[in-house]
Design a protein around this nucleic acid. Structure first.
Lengths: 233, 233
DNA sequence: CGCTAACGCGAATGATTACTCGCTTTCCAC
DNA sequence: GTGGAAAGCGAGTAATCATTCGCGTTAGCG
C-alpha cells in the first residue's frame, strides 16, 4: 500500500507518530490548501519535528499521496457493503441505492475531497483516480454487456464511458458545489438519466425519444456579452 | 477586462510586448505546467526581461488570470455564431449543433484547457468559470421555463443545474481524456441524454420510463478488491 | 541494569523564485 | 534635434521551503 518509506515503523510509538502525521496532513490540506500545506506546518500540526516526518516519508508528495490513499480506502469501505447488497436488487433500485451511497460517502469526506480535487494535477494523484475508475469501468462494462446484447464492443465501451463519467462527475460536483438542490430530487434525476442512458444509448435514432418543445426567445448572449447574474449556480 | 496593470501600454511597441508575454505564458503553461511556469521562464520565452513583465502585470497570478480570460474569450468567439444560429433550429437540432460547437471549441484549445483546469484552484481562476457558468445557467433556465411549464421554480433550478453540468463536464472530460469513443456517437448519446433530461426530469415517478433488465452476476468488488484492468478508461 | 537500535528532535542548508530598482535605450512632441 | 516620458533591461534581494544531519531520548532485550 504505502510505497518506499524511508524507515518502516517498528514500535507502537512510531506507528502512532505516522498516523498523527497523516491525519495532520489531511487537516492542514483541508484548512490551508495545497500551497500552504508545507511540510513544516504539517509537522507542527502533528506535534512532531520536520525530521521525524522525513523518517517515514520520502518527500512531501509521498505523504500527500498517502492522504489520497486513505481517502479512497475510506470511500471504498463505505461503499462496498452497499454495492454488495445492491446486486440482489432490481437494477433501478440498485442504481438508486448505489448513487445514494456514493453521495453519502463523498459527503462524509467533503472537505478533504475538495482539497484533493484541487491538488490533483502535476502529481502522482491521478494514478489513484485512474485505479478506482478502472475497476468501476470494468464492472459497468460487464453489467451493461448482459443488459444490452444488441451493442457491439465499441458501442459498449462508449456507453460505459459515459455511464461512469455520469456517476462520478455529477455526484462530485453536487457535493462540492452544494447547489440549491434537494438531494433526493438530484438523485432521482440522475437515476433516471442513468437508466435511460443504459437502456437507450447507442440505439439507432429513436423517434420515440422524447423531444423538447419549441425554442424560447431568450438570447444566449448579447453582442457585448453582458454578464447576466443568476443565483442558481 | 484586464484588471490593475501597473502601467497601461501606450505605444504600439509595448502593446506588442504585452501580447508576447501573454502568448508566452500560455505556451509555457501548456508545456511545463503550473508549477514550472515561473515568471522568469515566461519572460525568457517571451524574449523580454522579468522587469518588463512586471511593468504590465501586478503579479504572476494576474498574468495567468489574463491567460484564462483569453481562453474564455476565444471559446465564446467560436461558440457565439453557432448559438445565435441555433435559436432558429428545432430544439433537438439546436442541442446537437451547440454540443458539436462546444466540443470543437474545446478541442481547438485542448492543451491550454488541460493546463488551466489543472491549475484552477487556490487562485482567482474560479471566478472566470463562475462568470461564464452564470450566463449559461441563466439562458438554460429561461429556455427550460418555457418548455416545462409544469415545473415550479425550485425544480427548474435543479433541472437547469444538472443540464448545465452535463453540457460542461462531459464535453470537457471527453476532450481531456480522449477516450476511445467516436465523437459523433458521443455527441449523439449526450444529445439524447439532454433531451430526455429536459423533457422528463422532475416528473413524478414515471412508469413509462425505460428500465434496465435484470441484474448480472458480475460482482462489483471482491473481498480483497483486486484491481481489474480495463482498456476502456 | 546497561546496551543497542529505534525514535525523535530542530537548527541549519541549499535551492528556488517572485519581485525590485537603478540604469539604459527608444520613442515622440515641440 | 532635444528633452522628457515611456519602455526595456537584468543582476540583485528577500523570503520561502523541502530536506538533511548530528545529536539527544526512549524502549526493549539480555
Amino acid at each position: 500500500m504505502s510505497p518506499d518509506r524511508r524507515r518502516a515503523p517498528q514500535q507502537e510509538r512510531s506507528r502512532r507518530t505516522v498516523e498523527r502525521i497523516i491525519d495532520a496532513a489531511a487537516r492542514v490540506l483541508e484548512r490551508d490548501g495545497d500551497r500552504d500545506a508545507t511540510t513544516n506546518r504539517i509537522a507542527k500540526e502533528a506535534g512532531v519535528s520536520p525530521g521525524s516526518l522525513y523518517q517515514y516519508f520520502a518527500d512531501r508528495d509521498e505523504l500527500l499521496l498517502e492522504v489520497s490513499h486513505r481517502f479512497v480506502a475510506r470511500f471504498e469501505a463505505e461503499l462496498l457493503p452497499v454495492l454488495r447488497a445492491a446486486t440482489r436488487d432490481d437494477p433501478l433500485t440498485a442504481i438508486h441505492r448505489v448513487l445514494n451511497a456514493i453521495v453519502d460517502a463523498l459527503e462524509s469526506q467533503a472537505p478533504l475531497l475538495r482539497a484533493l480535487v484541487a491538488r490533483q494535477s502535476g502529481t502522482r494523484q491521478e494514478e489513484v483516480t485512474r485505479a478506482i475508475r478502472a475497476r468501476v469501468t470494468d464492472f459497468v462494462f460487464q453489467t451493461l454487456a448482459v443488459h444490452r446484447p444488441d451493442l457491439v464492443a465499441e458501442d459498449l465501451e462508449r456507453v460505459t464511458w459515459t455511464f461512469v463519467e455520469l456517476t462520478q462527475l455529477l455526484p462530485v460536483r453536487y457535493v462540492l458545489d452544494r447547489p440549491n438542490v434537494p438531494r433526493d430530487a438530484f438523485v432521482a434525476d440522475l437515476v433516471r438519466l442513468l437508466a435511460v442512458h443504459a437502456a437507450q444509448a447507442g440505439r439507432p435514432a429513436d423517434p420515440a425519444t422524447p423531444a423538447v418543445p419549441a425554442p424560447a426567445d431568450a438570447a444566449p448572449g448579447r453582442d457585448d456579452a453582458a454578464p447576466a447574474q443568476t443565483d442558481v449556480a
